[in-house]
């Protein structure tokens, strides 16, 4: 109305209609861009499932699929937390080392006769503390999280090696805590149930709570968020506490599943987690995170690892494939999907 009123220049009415069209196109593009990535990874997952179901004999059995889910549960749990971190345009490279340290320490304190419940609480608290340190340096001291968590990666791995002297520490199979890794409820492995709960809570938190909104805002335009009065440093710190906590839980699940705490656990774990998150369409530059994408991404990685083993492919290839997938996913995120207007940086 108002823009078409001043008719001093002849070109104005077309401008108006163009703007309306632009707006509609923008919404369509934004929505397609947002969901296309999730749909794409979903399609890839289905194709992989079909491929392995026909090529590997034992792939499509309930036992194998449940096993696959149990294998991928720790990855999924940490990937959910990592989605928050990456959405703020941060990164946490220390999760793999945290898995090793928490798993090792759990086994050691249990060997020293700690009550399993107390040990569990202490280990989770340790994970949160590690995350707090990561978050304090990155968010309050403005040191790039890449460097902070890389340093912590080394510190945690070294601490785990020092604590165990490189040996694995067995966990007594009679303790209830072993059920976390090995137990089943109605036939479903406990880690899977935990992962589903974490995923559901993470999903609601990211999409439906003020905290989730601030995580996206922090990655999108942190200064803008700060000016509205939100304590952005606290938000920036909290996401690392989440990954620390999730990594500790993953450490507990892995150690109890193997009935042993090893300082070599979780090597390459951070790569797997970050690959799952990026594969799901979460932007490494922040501002865009997809929980559903992360879940599908983690499942895809699990299916590939499991399927390749069943096809008797050398497990060494799994690492190569994973790295290649990470590279391709980042490439797709920043080049292919950018056409849909989903990526603007």
């Amino acid at each position: 109305m108002t823009t078409s009123e001043p008719t001093t220049t002849a070109g104005k009415p077309p401008v108006v209609s163009e703007r309306v069209v632009t707006t509609r196109a923008a919404r369509a593009n934004a929505h397609i861009g947002k969901h296309a990535q999730t749909i794409a990874i979903g399609v890839v997952l289905v194709l992989l499932l079909i491929f392995f179901a026909f090529s590997a004999d034992r792939f499509a059995t309930t036992g194998n699929l449940l096993n696959l889910l149990r294998q991928i549960s720790p990855t999924l749990i940490v990937a959910i937390a990592m989605t928050f971190v990456i959405s703020t345009s941060g990164i946490d490279l220390s999760v793999g080392s945290t898995v090793a340290l928490t798993g090792s320490l759990l086994a050691i304190v249990l060997q020293h006769g700690w009550d399993p419940t107390l040990a569990l609480v202490a280990i989770l608290a340790l994970g949160a503390l590690i995350g707090f340190i990561n978050g304090w340096f990155s968010s309050y001291q403005n040191i790039p999280p890449f460097i902070v968590t890389l340093a912590m990666l080394s510190i945690m791995r070294g601490t785990a090696l020092r604590a165990t002297e490189g040996y694995s520490t067995p966990i007594d199979g009679d303790l209830w805590i072993v059920q976390l890794g090995q137990g089943r409820v109605a036939g479903i492995p406990v880690p899977v149930i935990l992962a589903v709960v974490v995923a559901a809570v993470g999903w609601i938190t990211l999409t439906r709570t003020p905290f989730g909104r601030y995580v996206i805002g922090l990655g999108s335009n942190g200064e803008s968020l700060r000016r509205t009065g939100v304590n952005t440093r606290k938000v920036g710190l909290a996401v690392y506490v989440l990954t620390g906590l999730a990594a500790a839980l993953a450490g507990v699940l892995i150690a109890t599943r193997l009935s042993s705490g090893s300082s070599n656990a979780g090597s390459g774990f951070e790569l797997e987690v970050i690959t799952a998150v990026v594969l799901g369409g979460t932007s490494l530059f922040g501002g865009r995170g997809s929980m559903l994408g992360t879940m599908l991404g983690a499942l895809t990685l699990g299916v590939i690892a499991n399927g390749l083993v069943l096809l008797h492919v050398s497990p060494f290839y799994v690492q190569i494939v994973q790295g290649a997938i990470l590279l391709l996913a980042i490439f797709a995120n920043s080049k292919v999907w950018a056409r849909f207007g989903a990526v603007r940086k």
Binding site: P210, R213, I216, G217, N221, S224, L225, T228, G229, R344
Partner: peptide, 26 residues
């Protein structure tokens, strides 16, 4: 001072979103 990735309504109320469920949910 806007967050490009958040929608119009979200930007308008950024930092003071209307909440429900005891302030837990948007």
């Amino acid at each position: 001072a806007l967050c490009d990735d958040i929608d119009v309504a979200g930007n308008l109320f950024l930092g003071r979103e209307p909440r429900k469920a005891g302030g837990l949910l948007l």
